[in-house]
Design a protein around this nucleic acid. Structure first.
Lengths: 211, 211
DNA sequence: TCAACAATACCGCATTTGTATGATTTTAAC
DNA sequence: GTTAAAATCATACAAATGCGGTATTGTTGA
């Protein structure tokens, strides 16, 4: 028989913490090693007792679950973190992923799904509740309908803007493209007109899709 | 009984196309409406005969599956697209998501997983093969080790850099912070020294973690 | 064929920026 | 209570940049 997947639970609400612990410990192949009612105690204990999977609530008293993951991630690199929460706002989801969460499951998921997800996570997957997964996949989508401001730039202008975005000066770009610096300046001027900006930084921000 | 999920398949290799069609059509609750051996014929037929789910291979003769999804997405907004391919390179995956793919399944997945995935996709999820999901989730992760370069900046310097990153000039920043422009320039110069750069763009790139 | 556009190039001017040196005042740490 | 670091300001110069013209050439679509 395979070694059980070791699990820790961070959840402030007593009844939920208890039922999660019972669920995990009661299932074959899983072992709940520890439970915590706040982020601080988890940060205290887990680094010296790393587990395979941590189920992390987000809304905790004191430090929130996302910041807790960010810190634990550095201390327990081999541990997988599953956010287990009721929040499904965009910002929360993406902040959790940025902090290092590998999985994001909504609390309303049925128990057997949770166990499945822990297994999948431990086997190298990144199980997400379906609405979360859709949110994440959708965040990459670039709508062709959205008339990209950059479309009005000519290929040459885009090329120059790209090099500017890498921090190259007018003169450097001119050398790279084998044209005169004045030509580059003219192109840049035209770019400013088209993008309605007045400096390299503003142009680069638009180019790289910020602000 | 619920209406069957209507499916179309775009796959150039005859045997794979056939077995996918048989798999889908043979399962209860699924109905394979059409199969195509290239992107062009799919683009020809599907817009006027939209289906619930399209299984799309990537490596096709002529137009590839990603570009095909990009175009179909605009014409069949309610259709869900599942990339079904052997590629798992980063660039391919993210390009597919940018094009509008809602799901990305590797061909090596077992048949029952594929049917499950189609169902999940149709119900609003975004099923991904586990290695793919991990890749996607990981793409958000911001390593806490990276920003240590910025740690050497003082709060004031960070404040100024932040405003520079928004495209403000020296003078503007000076007005915003109620200090002399020369002070701002001094700070900026110190920032350059610390970050080992020589222009605003380079500094802002480091600040925003894009280089 | 002609107009529009893209890419190339030049000149010139005012402003911004990068670099250097030096100094004063707050603030924080020991 | 001294010291170190941070924040402030000044002056100065060279280089880079932003803005305004004008002009030539090649391509392209109406």
């Amino acid at each position: 028989m395979k070694t059980a997947i070791t699990v820790a639970i961070v959840e402030d609400k007593e009844p939920i913490r208890q039922s999660l612990a019972i669920l995990v410990d009661g299932a074959e192949g899983f072992s709940c090693q520890a439970t915590f009612e706040n982020a601080e105690s988890a940060l205290d204990y887990l680094p010296s007792h790393c587990v395979d999977v941590v189920l992390m609530d987000i809304d905790l008293p004191g430090m929130n679950g996302i910041d807790c993951v960010r810190q634990l991630k550095a201390l327990c690199p081999q541990t997988q973190f599953m956010m287990c929460t009721m929040y499904d706002e965009d910002e929360t989801v993406f902040d959790a992923l940025k902090a290092g969460a590998n999985s994001y499951i909504l609390k309303r998921s049925p128990p057997h799904k949770l166990l499945e997800a822990i297994t999948e996570l431990h086997e190298g997957g990144a199980p997400m509740s379906s609405t979360i997964a859709r949110k994440i996949a959708g965040s990459f989508y670039i709508s062709p309908a959205a008339p990209n401001e950059l479309d009005i730039l000519t290929p040459r202008e885009r090329e120059i803007l790209d090099r500017l975005s890498k921090g190259h000066s007018h003169k450097e770009v001119a050398n790279e493209l084998f044209v005169s610096p004045t030509t580059v300046r003219k192109h840049i001027f035209n770019i400013y007109q088209k993008l309605q900006v007045h400096s390299k930084i503003e142009a680069v921000n638009k180019y790289l899709g910020r602000q």
